[in-house]
């Protein structure tokens, strides 16, 4: 059964952040705390799964010339709904994420999965792929958020973990900290999984 493979792909082998390196703008911008990373991940998850499902269902009726335009409208609809939902129910999170929720529309991950996968595969496969990719994106954002919040604020989910002896590394919650964290995590993952060597052979 391929479904399991489609589901698993996004979690590790083709993880959007750590493997494919797509959708990095929101990743770098909002992961200064765990809750922001988690909310962004879940919002993207919702958009990805909904739009992949719909696109996979209606793929055969969409003329090739306007497929991208159609995908963007469908994605934008779900993004706007997610944005309204957050603003209505979680105003604090909505404020913290700012423009990055509406910007999910242009997240390469969402459009990328629609174009390369959902538009070419059956509905169950497309859903499995979107769920895997969405979860892969979410856990990556949460991991970055955990590292940056602990080091930058000494807390986790806004609960103070480290005592007064700890001087927070401010830079970790600033944009520069996002680059440091992502690159170090990426480096470690590549080092331990030996992918870097494989990549070299392909060149």
């Amino acid at each position: 059964m391929e479904l399991k493979d489609d589901l698993k792909r996004g979690l590790w082998d083709q993880n959007p952040i750590f493997r494919l390196l797509i959708g990095l703008c929101p990743t770098l911008a909002v992961t200064n705390s765990v809750i922001n990373g988690l909310s962004m991940g879940l919002a993207t998850f919702f958009v990805l799964v909904s739009s992949s499902t719909i696109i996979s269902i209606i793929k055969k009726w969409i003329p090739a010339q306007v497929r991208l335009a159609s995908y963007v409208v469908i994605i934008a609809t779900f993004v706007t709904m997610a944005d309204m939902f957050l603003a209505g129910n979680f105003p604090v999170i909505s404020k913290a994420l700012g423009p990055y929720v509406p910007l999910i529309v242009v997240n390469c991950l969402v459009l990328g999965r629609a174009e390369t996968f959902a538009s070419k595969n059956t509905v169950p496969n497309a859903v499995a792929d979107a769920v895997g990719m969405g979860l892969g994106f979410t856990w990556a954002l949460v991991l970055l958020g955990v590292i940056r919040e602990i080091m930058g604020s000494g807390s986790l989910f806004s609960i103070q973990l480290l005592g007064n002896w700890f001087q927070p590394w401010l830079i970790m919650v600033l944009p520069a900290g996002a680059f440091f964290t992502l690159s170090i995590v990426l480096g470690l993952i590549n080092h331990f999984s030996g992918k870097k060597g494989e990549a070299k052979h392909q060149h």
Binding site: P63, V66, V73, I74, T77, M84, F85, G88, N89
Partner: peptide, 29 residues
């Protein structure tokens, strides 16, 4: 005609969905 119809239908459905979502969330906002 088919291209126009496709985009038109998608646009109408999207607009309807958004109107519904807006109506549901605006009072809360």
């Amino acid at each position: 005609p088919r291209i126009v119809a496709t985009l038109g239908v998608i646009g109408i459905i999207s607009g309807g969905l958004l109107a519904w979502a807006n109506g549901a969330s605006e009072p809360r906002i």
